[in-house]
Simulated scan of single mutants.
Amino acid sequence: MSPRDDTATGLRLYDRTAVGAAASVIRAYSTSFSLATRLLGPRPRPHVRNVYALVRVADEIVDGPAEEAGLDAAARGAVLDALEQETRDAVARGFSANLVVHAFALTARECGIDESLTGPFFASMRTDLTATAHDDSSHDAYVYGSAEVVGLMCLAVFENAGRRRPTPPPAELVAGARALGRAFQDVNFLRDLDHDAGALGRDYLGVDGTRRTRDDVLDRIDDDLALAAGMIPELPSDCRRAVTAAHDLFAALSEKLRHDRGTERVSVPARQKAALAARAWWGAEPRGSRR
Rank of each mutant, 00 (worst) to 15 (best):
E148W: 03
S30V: 09
P166G: 08
G94D: 06
L152K: 05
T87N: 07
D223M: 08
V19P: 00
P269E: 13
R27K: 12
Y29F: 10
D59W: 03
V266W: 00
A147N: 06
D248M: 09
L218M: 07
A69N: 04
L225A: 04
G162K: 12
N188T: 07
D196K: 13
G64K: 04
G176N: 02
R287C: 10
E68K: 08
D260H: 15
S30H: 09
G262R: 08
L71M: 09
E264C: 02
A108N: 00
A21G: 01
R220A: 11
A274I: 14
V157C: 05
Q185F: 09
L155S: 09
V266C: 12
N160H: 13
D216A: 00
A108C: 06
D203Y: 01
H259V: 15
L235I: 10
A133K: 13
E234Y: 07
L129N: 00
A92V: 05
L39P: 03
L99N: 04
T17L: 13
A229G: 11
A21L: 06
D215V: 00
F184V: 10
F95C: 00
Q85A: 15
W282R: 14
Y14S: 04
Q85V: 03
R16T: 14
H247I: 06
Q185N: 09
A161D: 03
P120W: 11
G94Y: 11
C154L: 02
V174P: 04
T263V: 10
G119W: 06
G112L: 08
A66P: 06
A246E: 01
A36T: 04
R126W: 11
A92E: 14
V57T: 02
L200I: 07
L80W: 01
P42C: 04
A141E: 00
G20K: 07
E84A: 14
L80S: 07
